[in-house]
Amino acid sequence: MKTRKNETVVERYTVLDRAAHTIHAFAMVLLILTGLKIYAGWDFMSFHNARALHMIMVPILLAVNWIIIPYNIFSSSKGGVRNKIEHFMDHYIFGPEDAKRTVAILKNFFGKGEYPAFSIYDKEEGHYKTKLHPVMKILIVLEGTALFLIAVSGIVLYKLDWALFGLPVASWILSIGDLIGPALGLSSLQFFRLLHLLMTYWFVFELVIHVGILEFDPHVWKYYKAIFWTGKEDLSDKHFVKVLNKSSKKTYQDNERSWSDAEKAPVKD
């Protein structure tokens, strides 16, 4: 989507994208801090305040991740379900081209070759083909998994007999833990407590990778401004950006078949 004033400035993140990311970041940091306070006994706030804050942030984080972000993903593309899935796969799932980009990024780190473009904009169609850093695509899938695991384990830490609409959810979760925990010499509750701690560390680890490595490059800092404030990307800044026009689009498509193209590709005998 182009802006009226400048032909090269496009909308990278919608208002809802930015709000979701900011709330997600805020809730996540608070959850990590209050969670580690409860676990390690840090004395910067009382246990009860830490627990209350922790429990307030949980529904906020889950609502952002399980409602707003899926809505953003699937509302940002036009067409039917197939188009939306195609858009999701192109934008968020690590594919062969992302693997190539990752290798090129590593080579670039050691002084060989250019930093590859990962923000690919289709000028003709007026939207991004893909825009996330390839490693970010890996992190997003892992984060989704970690979020699910930490939420599930969090339920039994919150209340051992938690039920939803009369369904004994916590009891079911503990029963699943009974299948795994004993193999590790743990009771079900111990297993979920350890899982919760492990996932907490995962989020700290992810934060270090995300902020400290992927986004710690003076050329990347334009994306900070975009995700937290403007939502815009200036395509004339060629760092990490590739704009596809009629001629280059053909070459790009030849190199990178989209998910739907791959599905349609004939099988050779």
């Binding site: 560390y201 700290v204 270090v208 990778i209 400290g212 490595i213 490059d217």
Partner: peptide, 15 residues
């Protein structure tokens, strides 16, 4: 986990 986070922080510093 602490070692992994520490290693990531070191890598971030080098990066």
């Amino acid at each position: 986990s602490k070692a992994a986070v520490g290693a990531a922080a070191l890598a971030a510093g080098a990066h």
